[in-house]
């Protein structure tokens, strides 16, 4: 039996996010998995129909935490110490990355971030194997974790979301009250932004050095708008000043995992691929047929973007009309 705690996250409406359902899939694959979903906040909401054995609610973080997750770290450390699971799973979100790491070091547990595979050993529930990309996705590393609990974060999109339903037992876990808050958040400032957020977009249209200048990004923006997506860019295009660095996809920029990632004039250096390799499908348009992007892409056109893109855009428009 492998006991697993999945730490759930919710969207603004209180619904369980897709990445938590992906974690449930990853947990279900472990030998004879007994899964508990831990949810922060006072009402379990849609977690009560997850296909797991138990749902545990802990203190309503939204109203008591300071945004740096001091409270969540303290609460989860108390729960994990009381529950002694074999595995604690987070999504590789800001929350999961910070709280997972802090929790592991607070209780002296092993931490493996950004896993794309996780496996158990049917004869030894305490031994967990994980695989994670390293060196910007150029290599894969397989690790064995022999000490319990193993605390992991899972890369978005590495597992299919579990859409089954179930009837878990719902419990609440009382913590010892509020964590001392050494760090105070006085306000949150929203920065205005046009269109769809790059990290959330189902379609990303990205441009690179091959575009040759800033003007072509307006064509990319047109395509992104038709698709209801966002515009990305390679580091070379951002460094050249053709587009703001907030659009940069890659190791030093943003990580995206859209359904379709359209790379125009991008060579596909590992730096860049690190930010988009978990896309469902990569589509490459590049005039150099030998460039690395074609090794990563599912569909491609070898050709000059100036000739390929207008007809592609026009056809997409017709299909969408």
């Amino acid at each position: 039996m492998t006991t697993v705690i999945v730490v759930a996250e919710r969207d603004e409406k209180g619904e369980i996010v897709q990445s938590t359902r992906q974690a449930v899939t990853a947990a279900s694959n472990l030998p004879d998995a007994q899964i508990s979903v831990v949810i922060t906040g006072d009402a379990p909401g849609s977690a009560t129909s997850l296909p797991v054995g138990r749902v545990v609610t802990i203190a309503p973080i939204e109203s008591t935490d300071n945004g740096i997750y001091d409270q969540a770290t303290a609460d989860l450390a108390a729960l994990v110490s009381a529950d002694s699971p074999d595995v604690v799973m987070f999504s590789k979100s800001d929350f999961g990355s910070v709280v997972g790491a802090r929790l592991a070091f607070r209780i002296g547990a092993a931490f493996a971030p950004d896993c794309v595979e996780i496996s158990g050993d049917a004869s030894d529930a305490g031994t967990i194997g994980v695989t994670r990309p390293v060196y910007g996705g150029s290599a894969l590393a397989e690790f064995e974790i022999a000490s319990s609990p193993a605390i992991v974060t899972l890369r978005a999109g590495a597992f299919e979301p579990n859409t089954d339903t179930g009837a878990p037992v719902v419990e609440s876990f009382d913590t010892d009250g509020l964590e001392r808050k050494p760090v105070e958040v006085s306000e949150s400032v929203a920065e205005s932004r046009e269109g769809v957020r790059l990290e959330d977009a189902d379609f990303v249209v990205s441009g690179g050095r091959g575009l040759g200048g800033p003007e072509p990004f307006s064509v990319l923006a047109d395509l992104a708008e038709v698709l209801g997506g966002a515009v990305g860019a390679s580091r070379a295009a951002c460094d050249a000043g053709w587009i703001d660095h907030s659009h940069q996809v890659g190791l030093t920029g943003k990580s995206v995992s859209p359904d379709v990632y359209i790379a125009v004039g991008i060579s596909g250096a590992s730096q860049h691929m690190a930010g988009c390799s978990s896309s469902r499908a990569i589509v490459a348009i590049n005039k150099d047929g030998d460039s690395n992007i074609f090794k990563e892409a599912r569909f491609g056109v070898v050709g000059d973007w100036e000739k390929v893109l207008p007809s592609f855009l026009a056809t997409v428009r017709e299909l969408k009309a």
């Binding site: 092993a110 290599a139 894969l140 397989e142 074609f294």
Partner: peptide, 18 residues
């Protein structure tokens, strides 16, 4: 606490459809 068992360059099994 965590032991590296294997490090390798993944074979790209993705065949691009041009």
């Amino acid at each position: 606490k965590i032991e590296l068992k294997r490090l390798y360059v993944p074979e790209s099994n993705r065949q691009v459809e041009l």
